[in-house]
Each structure stands twice: as structure tokens, then as C-alpha cells.
């Protein structure tokens, strides 16, 4: 059952472009669809200008298919490649500035809680590694310290991709990138560990190689953020353009890193979040 707002007025239904009609008739609103249903429903993202073979674009698509209740989800993005895709998603979404996504989301989440105290309004932060771990790190971490009920997702392509492939804090040590012409001099920031120590109730790192695992992490992050506390999911999204490999190798790159443990997959759940998820997932509604 869809919310009333997702209904067209009959007066103009005949002139609405097909993609909107499809979203109402065959979109994921109120349907409980997940990643497994991709290909048989109208996706929340219509079309985007990201590169062929973009791992980030794939992750965005999978995230959008993983939302427990898209009809009550507002996405807060940040500057970067992902911000070219978010205007095209069929959800209300905010792009404010570079790095301030968790601060904006803190204000938004609290405002929505004030206006709709009896409803779950999921505020989902989706931003790149530069936005999350570099320029916005203080705001990301402080939203965790304050216990803001936000799900924060990092699309980690290990570089500033939108600006042309510069080193970021999440780039691997030794990696040669713009602004690191002799190779990066320090280690990849251990943000999952930092998240765990900063008060996140649920932390996971995943890749799009295993879409169901990604879906599970995103869903858990959103659900735990509703009741327990802040959550963090880090998704490795290889960038063929800036790391100069062939677009069809994106998933192979991710798989290789999973295998050789240079991008270890992890999940951390506090006992409180565990109990909350057990109660939810025991019901079989999600996963």
C-alpha cells in the first residue's frame, strides 16, 4: 500500500510521462522489494551521468533497492560523483556542500522527529570517501558521538574521483594518484574501527560483489539507526576512470581485494543492536 502522496491526481494522470506512471504502478514504494527483485520493478534511480563500469553507480543502485521504506526515506548526499546521481533518484534529497552531510542530516533528522514524532523517517547519508573521511570527518564523527539516529554510508572509491583522481585519506598507502605523485605516504584511514569506537551501534564494510550482503548491511544500518543509534556502512566501489582499469574489471578488482584482505569485509554490532535486529529479523520481515 502506497502513501496518499504517491498518487497522481486523476485530472492530469493522462499527461504524466511514462516513467512517473511506472514509479507509481511498479515502483518499490510500500512493496517491501529488495535487491533480489531488481529487474522486475521500476528502480528509484532513473538514469545517471556516471561513467561506464562505475562501481559507485552500482552501489547507489543497490542501496536504493535495499531501503526498507523508501516512501519515508530522505537522502542527504555530498559533493562528489554521487551527487551527480542523486538528483535523479525518486526520493527527496539534499545536496548541501562538501563534507557537511552529517551535520545537515543531524538537523534534518531532528526536525523530522519533531514534526513526525510517531513515524520512522529514515535519514540516510550517502557520500564519498573524501566527503566522509577527509573534509567532513569531524562532522561525521560528531554525529556519531552525539548519537544522532542516522545511517551513514561511505561510497569508498579510494580517491577524489569527481575532481580528477586525487589522493584521499582512504587511498591505500603507496598509491600513486594526483596530489600524491610519489605515492601516498600514510595508511588508509581505519574508519570502520573509528566508527565502532565513536558510538556506532552497527558498522559494516562490504562491496558490490555480494549484492545480498550489501543489502543486508544497508538495511541493518537503517533499521538500527531508527531505534538504537548511529550506524556506518563502508562500501568499496572501484573507480575504473581514475584507477585506469577497464570498466568490465570493476567487480574483479573488488573481488580481488576481498580475497587478499586488502579490503577486509567486517560487521560489528553492539549487543543492543543485535537484540533489536534479532527481534526484527526473527519475524522474517527483513532478510
Amino acid at each position: 500500500m502506497s502513501k496518499p502522496m504517491l498518487k497522481m491526481t486523476t485530472a492530469f494522470a493522462d499527461v504524466m510521462p511514462a516513467e512517473y506512471v511506472e514509479l507509481v504502478q511498479n515502483g518499490p514504494f510500500g512493496k517491501g522489494y529488495g535487491v533480489a527483485d531488481l529487474g522486475s520493478f521500476k528502480e528509484l534511480i532513473e538514469e545517471h551521468p556516471l561513467c561506464a563500469g562505475c562501481g559507485l553507480a552500482l552501489a547507489v543502485r543497490l542501496i536504493m533497492a535495499s531501503l526498507p521504506t523508501p516512501e519515508d526515506t530522505v537522502v542527504v548526499g555530498s559533493t562528489g560523483c554521487s551527487s551527480l546521481a542523486f538528483p535523479q533518484i525518486a526520493l527527496q534529497n539534499i545536496h548541501s556542500l562538501f563534507g557537511n552531510q552529517n551535520a545537515v542530516a543531524s538537523g534534518l533528522k531532528r526536525a523530522l522527529k519533531l514534526r513526525f514524532p510517531d513515524k520512522h523517517k529514515d535519514v540516510l547519508v550517502v557520500a564519498g570517501d573524501g566527503a566522509t573521511a577527509d573534509i567532513g570527518l569531524d562532522m561525521v564523527m560528531h554525529s556519531w558521538f552525539r548519537g544522532e539516529k542516522l545511517a551513514t554510508i561511505m561510497l569508498d572509491n579510494e580517491a577524489y574521483a569527481n575532481t580528477g583522481g586525487q589522493e584521499s585519506g582512504m587511498s591505500p598507502e603507496g598509491c600513486v594518484l594526483n596530489m600524491a605523485p610519489t605515492g601516498k605516504k600514510f595508511k588508509k584511514i581505519a574508519l570502520p574501527e573509528i566508527a565502532r569506537e565513536s558510538g556506532c551501534a552497527y558498522v559494516a564494510s562490504v562491496t558490490p560483489v555480494q549484492p545480498r550482503k550489501l543489502e543486508k548491511a544497508v538495511r541493518r544500518a537503517i533499521l538500527v539507526a531508527r531505534e538504537v543509534g548511529p550506524t556506518y556502512v563502508q562500501i568499496f566501489v572501484p573507480c575504473p576512470t581514475n584507477f585506469k582499469f577497464k570498466p568490465q574489471e570493476t567487480l574483479a578488482k573488488a573481488k580481488q581485494k576481498e580475497k587478499d584482505q586488502t579490503y577486509p569485509l567486517r560487521e560489528f554490532i553492539t549487543p543492543e543492536a543485535q537484540a533489536y535486529l534479532a527481534a526484527l529479523e526473527g519475524g522474517g520481515k527483513h532478510d
Binding site: M5, L6, K7, M8, A11, M16
Partner: peptide, 13 residues
């Protein structure tokens, strides 16, 4: 006016 997001919209549309 395209979406019936609140009361009165359908009539105005």
C-alpha cells in the same frame, strides 16, 4: 497539482 499530496488538491487539479 499533479500529485494528490494533500486535501483539496484533486479538486483544484
Amino acid at each position: 497539482l499533479l500529485w494528490e499530496w494533500k486535501e483539496g488538491v484533486a479538486e483544484k487539479a
